[in-house]
């Protein structure tokens, strides 16, 4: 699970090790990455909105 989150965060930043990329692409199903990415994206957007609301208050 932690490996999955690390790979998605690396994709958010746009930097990944070639070795890790190969490992991720050899996974049997992409759904784990997709679901983790959607959840992290929602957390990111909500966090950003929360930060903006907090600062503007």
């Amino acid at each position: 699970m932690w490996g999955l989150i690390k790979s998605v965060l690396a994709a958010f930043l746009g930097v990944q090790k070639e070795e890790q990329r190969r490992k991720d692409f050899s996974a049997s199903s992409p759904w784990g990455f997709i679901i983790t990415a959607v959840i992290l994206a929602i957390i990111f957007v909500v966090g950003l909105a929360g930060l903006a609301i907090w600062v503007a208050r």
Partner: peptide, 13 residues
């Protein structure tokens, strides 16, 4: 060389 993760993280961050 193909990649240098430290440098890439540096110039992204």
């Amino acid at each position: 060389f193909h990649e240098h993760t430290t440098v890439e993280i540096f110039w992204t961050t």
